[in-house]
Design a protein around this nucleic acid. Structure first.
Length: 646
RNA sequence: GCCAGCAUAGCUCAGUUGGUCAGAGCAGCUGAUUUGUAAUCAGCAGGCCGUGGGUUCGAAUCCCUCUGCUGGCUCCA
């Protein structure tokens, strides 16, 4: 007999060789039907794998991420089985589960595969799933595994096996398909009820551009048809929020082939919105002791050789610009920091001046591969809300804290409520990857961790993800429909001060090296605006939105009164427009709703004689009649509250 | 850059197997209407069917080139 400890700490006794699935049946048949896998002493196992020792057991279902993973991984096998039947002879690469579903990389040889073929494969999968094929695990020797796949002619699997240790190799068989796989898998394919293959893409074998490109097919499966439908609705919602569509609809930005790929053009409404964002941050930064600086868009190639960007961005930069004088070359700047270092170096500094905080909305240029470009989120020219703080090592922690204050204030003002913080530290087993002495690393890592602990930040720590010059803290926001976006970043840097020989004179009258903090709360204006658009679906916060109010006169008779109202609003600092077309009120309301303007003021005979407006709020409807000063005050106090500026 | 798909009016899209196939709605302009909480009516204008080549008696439609757009290109059995 063995003891099985369940999550509620109850202990049950079973015979050797019992399986998680049988235990589930013992608890209830309903549960058993939902079991996808099991966690045995913290390790994810097949629910059908025999248990021979005392263990703690957690049954995994669709509600557990590990359960989902097992389901999707098994779905990848199911897809491979279907494909092997439909396209005999194809060769398989890898087929893992991913965050939202699974994929399989396959060498389709001479078959042409496009999205038209997906439906056929889906149907085959459904047919196979209904057979409730069981996944059978078999542990094999390396020689046996190699023999199996050489007989099959699957050179990719052979390559994978050759890198594995003998004794740790397992095969899984479901129906007529056998795959090299460590598992775990779901008990049988019967739980896969809803299948959607989503896209076909090329993917290099093992991500290596020099190797053969395989065909990757992505898909996702669900235990219930309803969940697939919900997923498709979510995708649809994401589509509606796409910043590229909304940017066009709301006249915010555009691209032109004549100007060039990945080079955004900001239209007046977009530029005004961006200016408001910049102005907001400038005000916050002024309060926090930042000083504006301005640096040119190009710099001598030697500047970037000193900073190390030349080595790093050489390939990803636009080609150097040559001058008529031989031997002189300039780069479009890929980052602002080298310039700011030289601004610091413009004159000597005393410890009494530190910290020095230089801020610049600096436009940088990087040559991204054409296929990487995407709306405003991935472009070739963009503006960072950059700042560099030069401080003494002792001031580091305080300065780091101050930057977090700024970032939190901004996220609050923009209604990003769900923020994940990632602290990226050095991989201490692999110190060669980084520069700088241990002491500095320990100090700066400790500073970040202490700050995170003191502020009780909801932070995850990643080892080995630090920049080569120092640890960093990244801010990842979740938008309104749950997608994650990396925005702000704070980085500690001991490298550039050294490379640029930055110094200050200390109280001891000696030269000392300052520490540098790189930080960008928005990251880049382009990317941030894109994320903001998708987050709010084009319904910007009141303080940011292009037009806060639209005046809708009932008929042309009231246009003059409407213009007077607009004037009064302007005097109260409220942005508005007026719709003087000779359209019916219903039409004007509809158009204003579609333009997502927060407030509609409807004015007619009553309002004109009373000096009032009938207020309708976007998405909510009629709010009733207000005096002009009264509603102006309401709007302004709302704006003030959102901006949190006082 | 590579793989797959797409490209028709400012926008969203129709255009069956090549032969009145250059169309619709919205937006725009002109006029009528003077309107009370999500589309008033009528008329007008608007396109080298992404570019260049080819096949054909004939191409928006078939083939090739180029350009651009979209989705991907390790989340490592």
């Amino acid at each position: 007999m063995i003891n099985i400890t369940l999550p509620d700490n109850s202990v049950k006794q079973y015979n050797d060789g019992i399986t998680a699935l049988k235990i589930a049946y013992d608890i209830s048949e309903g549960l058993a039907r939902n079991v996808l896998a099991a966690k045995v002493n913290g390790e994810v196992w097949d629910a059908t794998r025999p248990i021979n020792n005392d263990i703690s057991l957690q049954l995994l279902t669709w509600n557990d991420n590990d359960g989902k993973a097992a389901m999707w991984h098994s779905s990848a096998h199911l897809m491979a089985e279907a494909i092997e039947i439909l396209y005999p002879g194809v060769k398989f690469g890898i087929g893992p589960d991913i965050e939202n579903g699974f994929y399989y990389d396959i060498d389709f040889l001479d078959y042409d595969i496009s999205e038209k073929d997906l439906e056929k494969i889906e149907r085959k999968m459904q047919e196979l799933a209904r057979e409730k094929q069981e996944f059978v695990r078999r542990e094999v020797s390396k020689a046996e595994a190699l023999r199996f796949f050489s007989n099959k002619g699957d050179e990719y699997k052979i390559e994978l096996i050759s890198e594995l240790e003998d004794g740790e190799i397992s095969l899984y068989q479901s129906g007529g398909f056998t795959d090299l796989c460590r598992g775990p898998h779901i008990p049988n394919t019967g739980v896969i009820k809803a299948i959607k293959l989503t896209k076909v893409a090329g993917a290099y074998w093992r991500g290596d551009e020099s190797r053969k490109q395989l065909t990757r097919i992505y898909g996702i499966t669900f235990p219930k048809k309803k969940e697939l439908d919900e997923y498709l609705i979510l995708l649809d919602e994401a589509k509606k929020r796409d910043h590229r569509l909304l940017g066009k609809e709301l006249d915010l930005f555009a691209f032109s082939n004549k100007v060039g790929l990945g080079l955004p053009l900001w239209l007046p409404k977009g530029a005004e919105l961006r200016e408001r964002l910049e102005q907001f941050l400038k005000t916050v930064q002024k309060d926090a002791g930042y000083k504006p600086v301005i640096s040119p868009h190009i710099g001598n190639v030697n500047l970037y050789k000193i900073s190390g960007h030349y080595q790093k961005y050489g390939e990803e930069s636009f080609k150097p610009i040559s001058t008529p004088v031989a031997g002189e070359e300039f780069f479009l700047k890929p980052m602002n920091c080298p310039h700011h270092c030289e601004i610091y170096n413009a004159r000597p500094h005393s410890y009494k001046e530190l910290p020095i905080r230089y801020a610049e909305f600096g436009t940088v240029y990087r040559y991204e591969q054409s296929g990487e470009l995407h709306g405003l989120t991935r472009v070739r020219g963009f503006t960072q809300d950059d700042a560099h703080i030069f401080c003494t090592p002792d001031q580091l922690k305080q300065e780091f804290n101050n930057v977090i204050d700024i970032i939190e204030r901004i996220f609050t003002a923009l209604d990003f409520k769900d923020v994940i913080i990632q602290i990226s530290l050095r991989d201490s087993n692999n110190k060669d990857k980084y520069i700088g002495c241990d002491e500095n690393w320990q100090k700066s890592e400790a500073a970040i961790i202490e700050v995170a602990e003191e502020r009780k930040l909801n932070a995850i720590v990643e080892f080995g993800e630090a920049a080569f010059y120092g640890p960093k803290m990244d801010f990842i926001v979740k938008d309104a429909i749950g997608r994650k976006w990396q925005l702000g970043t704070i980085q500690v840097d001991y490298n550039l001060p050294e490379r640029f020989d930055l110094t200050y004179i200390g109280a001891d009258n000696g030269k000392h090296r300052p520490v540098m903090i790189h930080r960008a709360p928005f990251g880049s204006m382009e990317r941030f605006v894109a994320v903001l658009i998708e987050h709010c679906g084009g319904n910007f916060p009141l303080w940011l939105t292009p037009d806060q109010v639209i005046i809708l006169p009932i008929s042309e008779k009231y246009n003059d009164y409407g213009k007077n109202v607009l004037n009064s609003l302007g005097k109260n600092g409220i942005r508005g427009i007026i719709d003087t077309r000779s359209e019916k009120t219903g039409r004007k309301i509809r158009d204003a709703e579609l333009k997502k303007i927060p407030f509609m003021f409807i004015v007619g005979e009553k309002e004109e004689s009373d000096g009032t407006v009938a207020v309708r709020k976007h998405g909510e409807g009629d709010l009733g009649t207000f005096g002009i000063q009264e509603i102006s005050d309401i709007i302004n106090s709302e704006v003030e509250k959102l901006m949190n500026l006082k």
